[in-house]
Computed example of a mutant assay.
Amino acid sequence: MKTSKRLDQALQKLYTAFHNNTLNPECCKQCAVGNICDGTDSWKHLSNGHGMFQLSYVGRVHQSLGRRFNGYTPLELLNIEAEFLKGCGYTLPLHHKNAKPKNPTDKETLFGGLAAAIAYLCKLEGISNVMDPADLLRKAKAVNPQVEAEV
């Protein structure tokens, strides 16, 4: 499957962050979008709060000018982060009264967020989810017909 440069780079950054324990949903530099944006928190000015779906004035200006950050528009970045946070178990927007996971940096929690963010990234590209187990099994079976017998 051919993927775009922006998707390849985002996947590499997210997988690296997950495996290096530098993925943290409560840190603007280490969350999904923070990692996609090379460990910076400048993206947080695109909205009025972490986990919010609406662009701030600054975000609307960048969006209307067609600006992209590592290939993604401001609105796409907010949605990527929202999917990541929801996948981790947060109720959005982030607020001390809203639900959140007991241990936000637990590998299982982070994997849920990673899977949700990657599913959304693939949807943006118009391709099937690269983490979909059924799709992976179909591809494996196409290469080796005995895969089904082994599964």
Rank of each mutant, 00 (worst) to 15 (best):
I127M: 10
R6Y: 06
A149H: 08
G89K: 04
L78S: 07
P74I: 03
E81M: 01
T40N: 06
D38R: 11
G87Q: 05
L124G: 04
Y57C: 01
L121Q: 08
Q146Y: 11
H50P: 02
D8M: 10
T91N: 05
S47R: 00
F84Y: 04
Y57K: 15
Q30H: 13
C31E: 02
S42V: 13
A149T: 10
L85E: 00
N24A: 06
A140D: 09
F53H: 06
V143F: 11
A17Y: 12
K86D: 06
T91C: 00
G39D: 03
I118R: 08
G89A: 02
A32V: 00
Q12W: 15
P25M: 02
W43C: 02
A134V: 15
S64N: 14
A140M: 12
Y15W: 15
N79C: 10
V143L: 10
S64G: 05
N98S: 05
E76N: 01
G51P: 04
Y15A: 13
G51V: 05
G126E: 06
K5N: 06
S47W: 00
F84C: 00
K100P: 01
I118T: 10
L46R: 14
I36A: 01
I118F: 08
S42T: 15
C122E: 05
C122V: 07
I127A: 03
V143I: 09
L11V: 10
F18E: 05
R68H: 12
D106N: 06
L11W: 14
Q9G: 03
T16H: 14
K102H: 09
A17P: 06
L137W: 14
M52T: 11
Y72W: 13
K44Y: 11
I80T: 11
A82F: 02
G59R: 10
D8V: 09
T40A: 05
C31M: 01
L137C: 10
P74K: 03
H19D: 12
I80C: 06
A115P: 00
R138L: 09
L75C: 03
K44G: 09
A149C: 07
P104K: 00
L11N: 10
A10Q: 05
R138H: 12
N48H: 13
L77Y: 08
F111M: 00
L75Y: 07
C88K: 03
M52Q: 15
C31R: 00
C88M: 01
K102E: 05
A17G: 03
H50E: 02
Q9K: 12
V58D: 12
H45Y: 14
G112M: 05
N103Y: 13
R6H: 09
L78M: 08
K5Q: 06
Q63T: 11
G87K: 04
L65Q: 15
F84N: 01
A117I: 09
K2H: 13
I118Q: 07
P145S: 00
Q30I: 08
V61R: 14
D38T: 07
A149L: 08
V33A: 04
P101A: 04
A17W: 11
V130Y: 12
